[in-house]
């Protein structure tokens, strides 16, 4: 056995308990989602459904209006991601490249905002949006979520921007590009990986966000995915695990798709040999 093979076997051996811990809930979720309601509470519990069925998905989708929740969540998460990124990119550029008075204070301020839990602010926010007449507005939720995710997005993009050599922009200026053109044609394309990662994180944060969504969107029709899933448990006499798991499974799909489509930016090398 070659030493390399040995090493990877040892690594896998050590990692496998963790893999089990990570995959177990996922598999349980999948198997429960595929199990008919009648089969769930039988005495002889088996790991896998005897007759796999898609009826739970159909049920969640049609009778419980989960499709609506998915659409709401997509709208809100994409909106919050776009808004965060659109504001974070210029803000991060300023933080990474421009020398202005109070730059350090600004950095620290952003960090401090992250120390306050959104829960603490929720009542205040609710009153604010109520005052603005924006309760039940998905755009209000987009604004509120972006405000919370922005600081993190700015920090993350700024630290990526810091790794892009300044000479590249300087070379573009000397080549006759204005500040904005140099930013768009030279700087931004190189920062796509960093921006993609930030967008992904923001999207996932927003997708999973519960408290704000629950507070600001009072209407059944405007429930987001996490809220809708939470409400699935709410029947009085039974907890419909099969439906919850089917919904949860569907909720993981958009994130997986986005992750897969963004992946090539994540692994693309940073400066790609432009310097040295």
């Amino acid at each position: 056995m070659s030493p390399k093979l040995k090493r990877s076997l040892i690594c896998w051996g050590l990692l496998s308990p963790i893999v089990v811990v990570i995959l177990f809930p996922y598999l349980t979720m999948l198997s429960t989602a595929l199990t008919a309601k009648s089969e769930i509470f039988v005495f002889e519990k088996s790991w896998f459904p005897k007759v796999p069925t898609l009826e739970n998905f159909a049920m969640v989708w049609t009778e419980r209006g989960f499709g609506r929740a998915l659409a709401n969540s997509l709208y809100i998460s994409i909106g919050a991601t776009l808004l965060s990124v659109i504001v974070a990119v210029p803000a991060a550029y300023a933080m990474s490249r421009l020398h202005f008075k109070g730059r350090n204070a600004y950095r620290i301020y952003l960090l401090i905002t992250q120390m306050i839990s959104p829960i603490v602010l929720i009542i205040g926010l609710f009153r604010l949006f109520a005052f603005l007449g924006m309760v039940n507005s998905m755009n209000a939720l987009i604004a509120a979520q972006s405000a919370f995710f922005m600081a993190f997005a700015i920090w993350m993009t700024a630290s990526y921007f810091d790794t892009v050599p300044k000479e590249l922009e300087e070379a573009a200026w000397l080549d006759g590009a204005g500040k904005f053109t140099a930013f768009m044609r030279v700087f931004l394309p190189l920062c796509l990986p960093g921006i993609a990662v930030t967008a992904l994180f923001t999207f996932i944060n927003s997708w999973n966000e519960y408290a704000l969504a629950l507070t600001l969107l009072r209407d059944n029709a405007s429930h987001t995915v996490p809220v809708a899933i939470a409400f699935l448990t709410g029947t009085l006499y039974e907890i419909e695990w099969n439906l919850i798991m089917a919904a949860t499974f569907m909720a993981t799909i958009p994130v997986a798709i986005i992750f897969a489509s963004i992946q090539r930016y994540l692994i693309r090398g940073l400066s790609l040999g432009g310097v040295k």
């Binding site: 050599p165 000479e167 590249l168 300087e170 070379a171 573009a172 000397l174 030279v186 394309p189 190189l190 400066s271 790609l272 040999g273 432009g274 310097v275 040295k276």
Partner: peptide
Amino acid sequence: MVFQTYALYPH
């Protein structure tokens, strides 16, 4: 200007 690091546009 020719930079020490060349500063070629990588993309």
